[in-house]
Structure formats: C-alpha cells, structure tokens
Design a protein around this nucleic acid. Structure first.
Lengths: 146, 146
DNA sequence: ATACTTGCAAAAGCTTTGCAACCTT
DNA sequence: AAGGTTGCAAAGCTTTTGCAAGTAT
C-alpha cells in the first residue's frame, strides 16, 4: 500500500462498502489524502481544494470518513487537527520538529504496537488503538540556530 | 514525587528559579495542578478556579509555565487542551476511553522511553520528548453497552 | 422520486490581544 | 518606584449547525 493510486483505490472501495454516495467533494478529498502520505491539516486541505469544495464540507466529510474507518485523526499541534488515510500497514507514529513543524514518519515503531497488545490484555479495553508523537529540534533548525 | 504537597513544593521551587513573581493566581493554579495527577483541561481548571482567577489568566499562565518547564501540554482530544505538572519521574502516557473519556495513566511505558532514545540517536533531533495516548473502550462502557 | 449531500450564512467554542489598573519585588 | 501581572472587553480562529437547493442512486 504505497502508491497514491493504490491508496486512492483502497479509500474508494472503503467508501463504497459504507453505502455512501460518491460525490465530487468526497472523491477529491480522498484523492488529496491519497497523495499526502503524512497527515494534512484541515486548513491546508481547505486551501488545496479551494474552489473545488467548501471548508464546511471538508469538516463534515472528515467526520464521516473517520466513522467509516477510512481516515485517522492526528493531533500534532493544539491548534489544528490533521488527518491521514487509514490504509492498512501504514505507520501511525510521527516525528515532529518543535521549531519548524516539519513532519516525518517513524520507520520502526514496532515496540509501540507490542505495548498496545500488552495494554489491551492488562486493561481489558477493547478496540485499542493509539497515537504517538515524538517532538524535538530537527537538524536543519539546529544548524540554522548557529 | 507522589503527594500533592510535594508536587506543589516542586512546582513553586521551579517557578522561583525562573524569576517570576509569586502571585495569587499562579499559586492556586499550581495548587490545582498538584492535586490532579492526571491531565486537566483548561475548561475544568477554569471552573475549579472560577472566582479565584480569570480564564484569560489561566491561559496566559499555562503558556508561561510551559515555557518554564513546569507543566506539559497533553492533547487528549481535538477540542480541548489539557495540562499536567511536569514533575520528574512521572508518567507521560495515557489510556483514554473513547466513549466516556475516562483517563488513566500507564504504569509501564518503558518501551516508549527506549524508543525515544533510539529515535534521538538515529534522527539527530535534539531535546527529544514525546506524547503517547492509547484509546479504546473501557470495561465499564463495555458492560454498559450490553 | 427519495433521501443523502452540499453551500451559504450564522452561531458557537476556544484562544489570543490591547490596555488600563494593580501588585510583587 | 518600576515593571511584571491581572481583568475586562473585544477580536481572531477553528469547528459546528440550520436550512434551502442540488444530486447520486
């Protein structure tokens, strides 16, 4: 599940399963999400799709897609919510620069998945999922500071 | 670092070091935070301290305390920001019920700390810190659903 | 034809800012 | 006395809601 095309296809199939209508706004939103492998904020998404689709529609659609399990919400900063496609086998943990806000994904966060299993077993919680962000000052910002 | 009294003492000492004035609002805010071991939302804090201190002051003070390293921001839900005292040796990872919102802390999230070290080494990021939340349906909500 | 979706306008929340008055040092 | 702090009012953002018009099935 790597190329934007495959991701888009997966999202569309997901949407069809949930008996929802395939409207233009939904298609272009899924398309935009398929292109971005890292979380996109609603603000940025709104700008990218401006003219094509109303911001209100984006908000409503994101809620809907989240319920349907097509996207995952990511809370990178306090001021804005971001979303990523919840395509199977993709990373869910991120490394964020405190200074410039650059996001990168974490290649190997396997330990967190194992921890998740342990927590599920111990706590009795069902439908366990998680969100983990690591923050710091990236190399670029470090050299810029000198 | 367990009892509210010790936590409060630590926070006060921390504040003195940062050359800031010890005003009434600051003291009662630190006191409230010392009592809550788990993250408190600004909304709840505002209600608890209503009459004692203005909401605007709480917002400003929290920013200030965060800069000073006295508190840590926690993004449990998209709509509201919460804060906890950043007292040394305390947990930073939480287990949250998707349904009722109950928060509990995670007794053993050691693997995440180790992962953090690895990430620091590999990425070259400085001042690494993290935030991890695990979500699911708690036992109470599971039985309530039946 | 039906009922789900959208867009617009407006409302509702949460957070920040300006400024005069106040209080700690 | 000096300058950091606070409270009030108001502004700024982000997110949600109501409702009529539009559209996929």
């Amino acid at each position: 599940m790597q190329s934007p095309a495959k991701r888009y296809k997966w999202a569309l199939a997901c949407l069809k399963k949930s008996k929802s209508r395939l409207t233009h706004p939904r298609k272009i939103i899924l398309c935009a999400l398929a292109v971005h492998k890292l979380p996109v904020s609603l603000h940025v998404l709104g700008e990218e799709l401006s003219g094509e689709c109303n911001l209100v529609t984006i908000y409503r659609t994101m809620h809907y897609l989240q319920e349907a399990g097509v996207v995952r919400q990511v809370k990178l900063t306090a001021r804005c919510t971001s979303f990523v496609l919840a395509a199977p086998g993709e990373h869910c943990d991120y490394l964020v620069c405190d200074q410039c806000g650059a996001i990168s994904d974490l290649p190997d966060a396997q330990p967190i998945l194992e921890l998740e299993k342990q927590i599920a077993a111990r706590s009795g919680f069902r439908a366990l999922h998680h969100e983990a962000e690591f923050y710091g000052i990236c190399l670029d910002c470090q050299s810029a500071a000198r």
